[in-house]
Design a protein around this nucleic acid. Structure first.
Lengths: 266, 266
DNA sequence: TGATGTTGTCCCGCAGAGCGGAACGGAGTT
DNA sequence: AACTCCGTTCCGCTCTGCGGGACAACATCA
């Protein structure tokens, strides 16, 4: 299939090049967050213009992309929205979590999140806004480095030790604030503490002026599959940290129970 | 690339077969709503087992699919969730609509929806539950025939007449209830009335015991891009139809304004 | 206006990617 | 042990999909 430019170091055989490229196209749109043209995509992906054109045409025929406002530009299509809504794991999680989150938000008055782990990043899959709008978190689907967040710490802390070290092998921490943890040993110590006590705090480690508390959600198999967190202005959070913590921990426990997890005999 | 079994009636050339098949695989998962195995997919799609296996492996490598609970089974992956969250049209719509919907739900006490049109079906893209849970609407991303719903009527009524007749050409109406509109001329008359008065009702035309009112949301270009609707038990709805109607119409107007639409001088 | 940059779309020949048939190994059933 | 199902792997033949290049339609200059 074509000249294969240079690259293709004979790794990952048996994978469909065009499907991979199609996925790259979709991700490019997701990253850009706006309508894109053929040439621009072609440059971003390092693929021939005609190749990209063919990919985009096909994806548009499948309605994974749709023609944008001006001709020749494209954007993510409706079908993707549908597919995303049907990611089964999240359907269950959504149904189990939503009522609990609503209560939690009322009790704390702050923004409430549910996140899952992907590599070393957290992906937010549920979000309830507080009345005091914070300008940081954009929307569901947003990603952040796990060690910037309380949910992230909770999720990392739940990994088997060998898996954790494997993932942290090529960790390149970014000091987002003066309080961001950038030392691997400090992070490991923190995660051990989090695992032990069953919840995590984050005090301006991801964004100045923002603090949060998070606790693990377990699926029916007992494995940690997500984390709830309450996020708010650090001054307000400080005044109710103890209460917020116990509320978050309790919410996480209720959601886990609704997912079919029966806590082990203490 | 391979024997192309039989099919391939020389139509749609220049479309990538593997990408098309990948899309079919994803849709199969979405339809099933549960984890699927290779053989089952292979049967559903009429493709060779090894072909499906290759597709699934590739999609899993791209994280569009992920390994399920038992080995050898797969489900829709996290990346799809992210992609779906980034469908730009809906990001804007979401932000413009959510606060208005919250108010609308409080004012009516009923379930509130936002839907867009796809062919002759409506796809629900926002949903706020009422306290009186209705067992019908499953989740965001759910589809219904447009003529069963008030949102659907609103959206159909906004189509250019030629486009509408084109889509209705191969309309195969299903009489879901005794009140479902199954006659094309009656539907056209109803849609004309809807277009004229600016809102639509639905009285047990999609589900017995369920009624709804819907109104159009316009984008900044003035084109109808979505519809809001209030859905509830038909007895309760009847008692507040006038009020619900004006609330829905007003909500739709506010959302349109927030999207940048400035209503024409009357 | 004509020159020169874009852009999206289309054409086409070559070669290697992707197709499906078939074989393999493991889990449950009978 | 002889089934039958599953997911996975192998492999050779063929036709698909690759990218270079041509083209028309615009925009943006002088």
């Amino acid at each position: 299939m074509g000249h294969m430019t240079l690259s293709a170091p004979a790794t990952d055989r048996a994978l469909l090049a065009s499907v991979r490229n199609a996925a790259r196209v979709l991700r490019a749109f997701s990253r850009a967050g706006q309508e894109l043209g053929i040439t621009e995509l072609s440059r971003q992906l390092g693929l021939g213009k005609s190749t990209v054109h063919r990919l985009v045409t096909t994806l548009a025929a499948e309605r994974l992309l749709e023609r944008g406002s001006t001709p020749g530009r494209y954007r993510l299509g409706l079908v993707l929205y549908e597919l995303g809504s049907n990611v089964t794991e999240h359907v269950d999680l959504h149904q189990a979590a939503l009522p609990v989150l609503t209560t939690l938000r009322h009790e704390t008055g702050e923004m409430v999140h549910v996140a899952v782990l992907d590599g070393l990043e957290v992906v937010y899959v549920e979000r309830l806004e507080s009345h005091n709008m914070l300008p940081i978190f954009r929307q569901v689907g947003h990603r952040l480095p796990a060690h910037w967040t309380s949910s992230g710490k909770v999720l990392l802390a739940a990994l088997p030790p060998d898996e954790l070290t494997r993932r942290l092998a090529d960790w390149r921490p970014v000091a987002q604030t003066p309080w961001t943890i950038t030392d691997k040993n400090r992070l490991l110590a923190e995660l051990a503490a989090v695992a032990k006590r069953g919840w995590a705090q984050n005090n301006e480690e991801g964004h100045l002026g923002i603090a949060s508390v998070g606790a693990p959600i377990r699926g029916r198999d007992g494995k940690v599959m997500a984390a709830v967190s309450v996020v708010g202005d650090s001054a307000r959070m400080r005044t109710m940290m103890r209460r917020a913590t116990s509320l978050v921990v309790e919410s996480a426990r209720v959601i886990s129970r609704r997912l079919g997890y029966s806590s082990p005999p203490a």
